[in-house]
Nucleic acid binder design. Structure first.
Lengths: 131, 131
DNA sequence: AGTCTTGGCGTACAAGCGTACGTGGTTGTA
DNA sequence: TACAACCACGTACGCTTGTACGCCAAGACT
């Protein structure tokens, strides 16, 4: 659809916060982000402005407060970002990344269980599609 | 260990090619990359220079040809890059990305089988560590 | 010997990024 | 009403990234 310029790393964090919070004022986003890391209010403001400039967010003045809302869906952005990463770092192959994630980053037992189910499910539909 | 500046997207592709090929001249890297996408020879050269400047590669003149070799190991770079992505786009949680990869990008049947084994293995060691 | 090709190396340059500051208006408070 | 806190908005600035060009020397070809 719309072909937006890619998000930078910093912009991504702000976008993620915005997805989590829903429409929010700069200060609210700022405070949410503050809890995780030290960042300047103005920096957040600039990122939000850029997010809007790139077409990832909209904003409107509500009284004298500008409220930002995500425009692009998280799923879309994640898809594009991950596709790009997989392309560049793994030459387009998905499995090496999956392997890396599962082996090198901790996965809890209940998550493992979920994973197993996920696989069962896919396996079943594979069987159907390619008998 | 050494704290290198992060790789940019473009640099990553060159690094990956270099890992795949082992030590190689600029032209060799260029030709390998050409097959996948259109890129200028000088661009590749600049990326290799920057890779070295950032400490990800070394080079030495062999006759009048400069041979570049990867210095950082792929595993390390992948770890750092993926950690960063997971942090920024998923707030540090691994599972959403794993889920995304498995659900949204095609995984072949034999890869599914491999995944299942991987999970069995981890499950077993989990059991041992936390009885 | 003269010309073509190839490579190294220096340099460029606009756009994007990270990180803010300052100004001037608005609102809540003493 | 004077003052402090808060906000939007414009602006800045050095660094990085993407994408090259041009010059010069060494080897290859005629």
């Amino acid at each position: 659809m719309v072909d937006r310029p890619a998000l930078s790393k910093g912009e991504m964090e702000v976008a993620r916060t915005l997805w989590q919070m829903g429409p929010a004022a700069v200060r609210a986003v700022y405070q949410a982000m503050c809890e995780e890391k030290s960042i300047d209010f103005s920096t957040v403001q600039t990122y939000l402005r850029r997010l809007e400039a790139k077409g990832y967010a909209t904003s409107k003045l509500e009284g004298r407060i500008r409220i930002y809302a995500a425009k692009a869906r998280a799923k879309t952005v994640i898809r594009d970002t991950v596709n790009d990463l997989v392309e560049r770092l793994f030459g387009g192959e998905t499995m090496p990344l999956v392997r890396h994630l599962i082996e090198e980053r901790g996965i809890a037992a209940d998550e493992l269980a979920e994973l197993r189910q996920l696989i069962e499910r896919l396996d079943a539909s594979d069987q159907q599609e390619a008998p």
